[in-house]
Computed example of a mutant assay.
Amino acid sequence: MGLEILLQPRLTTNIKTSGETKHAGGATMKTATADGSNKNTNTGSILIFLLTIALAISSGCIDEQEGLKIDLGRTVEGVVRVPANDTDVVYFGFDLRLSPKEDARIYAPFLQYLSEETGHTFKIHFTSEYETTQDNLGCGITQFAALGALSHIKVHDEYGAIGLVRGLNAEGRGEYRAAIVTRPASDIEGLEDIRGRTFFFGSFYSTQGHLIPRKMLEDANITLTDLRQYEYTGSHRNCAKAVIAGKCDAGGMQDTMAISLADAGKLTIVAFSDYYPSSGISANKDVDPALSEAVKKALLDFDPKGKHATNLTDWDKTEMPCGFVEADDSDYAELRALAIRYGIIAQEVVE
Rank of each mutant, 00 (worst) to 15 (best):
I194A: 07
M216E: 04
E131I: 14
V89G: 01
V270C: 08
H23F: 10
F204Y: 15
A242D: 01
V76K: 02
S278W: 06
L111N: 00
V165Q: 10
T133H: 05
L164V: 03
K247N: 08
L111V: 03
I259N: 07
M320I: 09
F199Q: 14
T256S: 13
L164W: 00
L338Q: 05
T118R: 09
T17N: 08
A290M: 15
T12M: 14
D328V: 10
D328L: 12
E293S: 03
L224I: 03
Y159G: 08
G60E: 01
Y91D: 06
A309N: 04
T41G: 06
I188K: 02
L224S: 05
L224H: 08
R10D: 06
T318H: 00
C239A: 07
K307W: 01
S206K: 12
C61G: 10
Y276R: 12
L68I: 15
F200T: 14
Y332V: 06
N221P: 00
Q112A: 00
T41H: 10
I281L: 00
L51Q: 08
Y232D: 03
F204H: 11
S278E: 12
F122Y: 05
D255R: 12
A262T: 13
V165Y: 11
S203V: 15
N311M: 03
G19R: 14
E20P: 00
F272E: 03
L227R: 09
S279G: 11
G246F: 12
E4I: 12
R341Y: 03
T207I: 14
E326C: 07
E102D: 10
D88K: 01
A271V: 03
L291H: 04
R237V: 02
A327R: 15
A149P: 10
Q208N: 15
I57W: 08
K285T: 06
G78N: 09
Y91G: 06
P277G: 01
K101H: 08
R105L: 11
A24N: 13
D301Y: 09
A346G: 12
R74F: 10
L227E: 05
A309I: 01
S206N: 14
D314P: 02
L335Q: 12
M29L: 15
E102F: 05
E231S: 15
Q112I: 01
E231V: 10
I53A: 14
T313S: 02
N284A: 02
Y275W: 04
S235N: 06
S203F: 11
E231L: 07
Y342E: 05
D314S: 01
P83C: 08
G119V: 00
R105S: 13
P321V: 15
G148D: 14
I194C: 02
A337I: 05
I180A: 00
H120D: 05
D187V: 01
P304I: 11
S292N: 04
D219G: 10
S128L: 13
L164I: 01
S45Y: 01
F49L: 08
L299Q: 06
